[in-house]
């Protein structure tokens, strides 16, 4: 027996609102921008002293 053809337990539930995904994407971009600033501010690659 496979489960093909079975119905989801709550098929009528509405999908997560799109703003949830935008929030996740925005949070990821903010984290990346913060890391970019952090790297530019504090990181000095080995060899840059020369």
């Amino acid at each position: 027996m496979t489960c093909d053809g079975m119905q989801d337990h709550r098929p009528d539930e509405p999908d997560l609102p799109a703003r949830v995904y935008w929030l996740v994407a925005a949070a990821a971009v903010v984290v990346m921008l913060a890391l970019h600033w952090f790297t530019r501010s504090f990181n000095i690659p080995l060899g840059d002293a020369r």
């Binding site: 990346m32 890391l35 970019h36 952090f38 790297t39 501010s41 504090f42 990181n43 000095i44 690659p45 080995l46």
Partner: peptide
């Protein structure tokens, strides 16, 4: 942070 950064260890992005 300064010591780690000056050794190139904080290249997060």
């Amino acid at each position: 942070v300064r010591a780690a950064g000056a050794a190139g260890k904080l290249d997060a992005l």
